[in-house]
Design a protein around this nucleic acid. Structure first.
Lengths: 400, 400
DNA sequence: CCGTATTTGTTCTATGATGAACTTATTAAG
DNA sequence: CTTAATAAGTTCATCATAGAACAAATACGG
């Protein structure tokens, strides 16, 4: 029932009418009060009030149950929390990982309705991915009684940079068979939805910005330490994509011209030193059985010196890379994502020490509020998939 | 006569009234047609028309002499070029260099009225700088019959990062005696004007964006190769300053942990390999007489192998640094500033070759329009000082 | 328990930005 | 030389937006 009207809001780019701006803001933020909406849109309180009256009458905007409302301990009349009516629409986020596909369905009030992960044969093709995704989406919508017509879009997180103008995968470092794929053309007809595609690290950064460790922070760097090293740059609240879509590929910054060959073809990439891949291979060789990151961390926690040293060396290298990034970009915040930061101080101690040693402006030289803060990410495993949902909720223009 | 009215436009932050927006846009851009103003402000043609009628009646906006108007070879009624009345106000830009102060006075129509440079004893203090600047400004205003009350602000370009919140110099790599100086507090009372301060590389980037090689480009990196190496990042048309103001300090990205000690205290900074300082010192030692960059380039042009090799090595190192920046930021454009790019292909050949070798995404892999373009800067010696004028013309909020 | 301070949210009217239709100024084509 | 096409700039009635004043809902201090 909402589709026709909402579609007009949803497609409205630019500043648009107050209604469109209010709906867009609620889509981005989830829950807000009328006063916050006025402040964030720059509209007058009176305009927002009128607009909200109309939107509430047509049931597009509803009040959040007061029990869920954050208990404001401040004086003054308490704000009524508003959100989009969940029935107004649903968003899908998909992450195409190395050997698994994760799919999250959420409604426009930011509530996650379904979250599942299925294994898939490595080196699967985009077409296979599209077919499987279609099945997963249909199953999820069926299971939860959701109307397919209410689907506002599908966000796609891919393990490689995507050209922001033509929407093609540049080089999928994680899934090489995807190079050159036109995501919109491949997935649009199969999924019968507007498609919003982005790199998985960019998606993860969006998740941290919308719901995680970077809420309210407009300038930060997301730095992922996992099997590989990746990242994203957020400036003034926008993900920096770069002219070819490859911004934030921190793992392939060259830090030693004489270093070993990287899978990207260059030598001495940061990833070779700061990711878990090398350490895992070493450990497997040393102990004669396969290891994942949890296993490596457990081993180190158990007191195994070689793995402790390896994790420390990863931190040391990551800190060096972050010092280079910090010198160039000087972000307010670094969010450390991926699974390795779960190792805690074993990794983060050497990391911050190394950062401090290699950075231009030393901690002691500047006021505390001018220092780059380091925090672990809130999401570890489903950051990219959540961010793909965020892509749909946040989009301001046409699908892309 | 204009001061009172203009001040209200000038101080108006945020979106403001149509008049304020039109005046601000003209201040930033210099010359525009009514239609361009409508497009750039997002206001309706009718609104712009009414606003301009008012502004022209009060002589704040005037027509540019048609002879100067760019001969548009297109069909349709030709646009009338509009600009702010030069009498409306003047802006000053000052650059505090190692051993010279440069001062440019311009009016709000973007015409340079005075441009001069005076030598000063190295290691001069901020107070001395303020006193001398005061004298230079008074002389220039006297000489050209300008009213001091019409001065809208003084832009200050400093050879070191400036904390964007408190306006203090972090560490003046070029002029170390300035560390900790509060620019506004030091210069404001002496110059009796609003002060707008920024790092010299940020200023240079602004000059290239407003009048130089980056006109119309919203995402670019400015990379200076001179006695030192510096730079700036522009994203979505805004200079990225960073939380402490030290963004863009490319010269101190660490590229070799085992490298020699840098004047910043760290080891193996890019500047040690990519700036002219080392090469000049070597050449001076080798030939037993002092050299500047022009001399080094002339020597190399004359066929001197050692200096050719040194310039090529500088290019090689700069390309390596730019590859790191490109991998992290992936800008649409790199503007090469400073005096070394005047060496031409001797430097730029090895530079782009090295960039290509060390970068993640290779030229051949992407569409031409997705490639990072390299261009030399339009200004070499007065980029920073012009940019300081631009700081005043462009400012959107309070002095800072 | 009650008034004061404080913040949220609504009502109403004057204003001012807008869009549609129009005029003006030019190039290109017949 | 006339007409069509194109783009710039203007005029004016209309309606959406904003500002000020007001109403509602809470905390706090005495």
């Amino acid at each position: 029932m909402f589709e026709a009207r909402l579609k007009s809001f949803f497609e409205d780019a630019g500043d648009g009418t107050p209604s469109a701006r209010v709906v867009r803001l609620l889509r981005e933020r989830g829950t807000l009060s009328a006063t916050e909406i006025a402040r964030l849109t720059g509209l007058a309180k009176s305009t927002v009030s009128m607009t909200l009256a109309e939107l509430r009458r047509s049931d597009i905007v509803i009040e959040k149950a007061s029990s869920e409302t954050g208990r404001g301990a401040s004086v003054g009349r308490p704000a009524t929390a508003l959100m989009l009516n969940p029935k107004v629409g649903t968003c899908v986020g998909v992450l195409f990982g190395l050997e698994a596909i994760q799919l999250i369905v959420a409604d426009v009030s930011h509530r996650v309705i379904s979250d599942r992960k299925v294994q898939i044969e490595p080196d699967y093709s985009p077409a296979e991915a599209a077919a499987l995704t279609r099945r997963l989406i249909d199953e999820a919508y069926e299971e939860h009684g959701l109307a397919p017509e209410g689907r506002l879009g599908v966000g796609v997180a891919v393990a490689g940079p995507i050209n922001p103008v033509d929407g093609r995968v540049l080089r999928a470092s994680g899934v090489p068979t995807w190079a050159g794929t036109d995501i919109r053309a491949t997935f649009g007809p199969v999924l019968k939805s507007p498609i919003f595609a982005d790199n998985e690290s960019n998606c993860a950064a969006i998740a941290e910005m919308m719901w995680g460790a970077a809420i309210g922070v407009e300038d930060f760097v997301f730095f992922k330490i996992d099997l590989g090293v990746g990242g994203a740059i957020v400036n003034r609240g926008h993900v920096v994509r770069g002219i070819a879509g490859s911004a934030g590929e921190f793992g392939h910054m060259m830090i030693d011209p004489a270093g070993p060959l990287c899978r990207c073809g260059n030598r001495g990439c940061l990833e070779l030193y700061a990711s878990a891949r090398t350490a895992l291979a070493d450990t497997e060789r040393r102990l004669g059985r396969p290891f994942d990151m949890d296993g490596l961390v457990a081993l180190a926690r158990g007191g195994d010196e070689p793995s402790r040293r390896q994790i420390a060396e990863m931190g040391e290298a990551a800190g060096k890379g972050l010092a280079i990034i910090g010198t160039a970009i000087n972000p307010a915040l670094v969010v450390l994502g991926g699974r390795m930061p779960l190792a805690g101080d074993m990794l983060l101690g050497p990391l911050s020490e190394s950062f401090e040693r290699h950075t231009l402006v030393k901690r002691a030289e500047i006021a505390p509020e001018a220092r780059t803060r380091f925090v672990p990410g809130v999401f570890t495993d489903n950051d990219a998939c959540l961010g793909a949902v965020g892509l749909v909720l946040r989009h301001h223009g046409r699908p892309g």
